[in-house]
Each structure stands twice: as structure tokens, then as C-alpha cells.
Amino acid sequence: MEGIKREEILRLLEENARYTVKDLAAMLGLEAKKVKDEIAAMERERVICGYHALVNWDKTDDEKISALIELKVTPQRGDGYERIAEKIYQYPEVESLYLMSGGYDFTVILKKATMKEIASFVSSRLAVIEEVQSTTTHVVLARYKDHGIQLAENRKDMRMVVTP
């Protein structure tokens, strides 16, 4: 029996969260119970924070758009960026929030919404936060790849049926 392979479990789940415990155990050469316990432990420890479907919304009738906003802020004495980050990520409209190095401070990615909703959120929620110096809003025109998956392409097996 090989030791528990956290990284390998994580890589496989990241690739396909629907692998069953049994599949994972077989692929990694581990006992199913050990894999199950390890996943449960990682969920408790917030190493695994959730499981999502990767949706290509462009293939649906959904007409909403995705926006990415660059924020420049003035960090506060004592709290640094943490307090400001909290003020932003508490909004349910925010899908992702990253602190960046370089020319600006935060990348805010909003959940898909209409142009009107986005404009309203930026002007009446983000821009008014007192530490925020400036916002630059970018609209996503097309998504090609997300979470390591090429969205448009339906990969076909181009190999012949039987080869030596």
C-alpha cells in the first residue's frame, strides 16, 4: 500500500470532480476508504473548497456578460489590504478577487450580469469605497479556455481503430 497522495488526489479532482472515490482509489493504487477519508479531511481543512461544473455560457441563450475590474486602492495603516478585500468580496456579485503585484492592486471578476448591472455595481458599490482610487472595467468578449479546458473544441479521437 502506497502512502496517501494528496497532490495526486487534488490534481485528479481538479481535472474531473466527478471521479468517484472508487475510481480515484483504483487510479492511485490506494484503498477506497483512505481516499474517502483524505478527501473529507481536505474538505474540512478548506484545501478543497467546492466542486463546480465548468460551463460554457456562450453555448446557452444567456446574454449576460463577464467583467474584470482593475482596482487601485490606498491600503490602510494596520490592516493592509485585508479590510478592503473584505469590503469587496462580501458582495455576492463578486465571483473572484485577487490581490495583484504590478500596476494595480485588485482584480475583481464579477459574476455574469447585464451591462447595466455591472455599471451600477462599479459606480455605486466599488468606486465609492473610500480606499478605492480608481477602477478600470474590462468586458470579456470571448472565452477560449478556462480551468485548463479548451471550451469550444470537441476533441475527437483521430487515431485509427486498431494499430499495431
Binding site: 479521437d157 487515431r159 485509427m160 481503430v161 486498431v162 494499430t163 499495431p164
Partner: peptide, 8 residues
């Protein structure tokens, strides 16, 4: 097919 002798 599981008959192919090349990488996928």
C-alpha cells in the same frame, strides 16, 4: 476501441 498502439 482499446486496440490502438499509440498515445492518446
Amino acid at each position: 476501441s482499446l486496440g490502438v498502439g499509440e498515445p492518446d
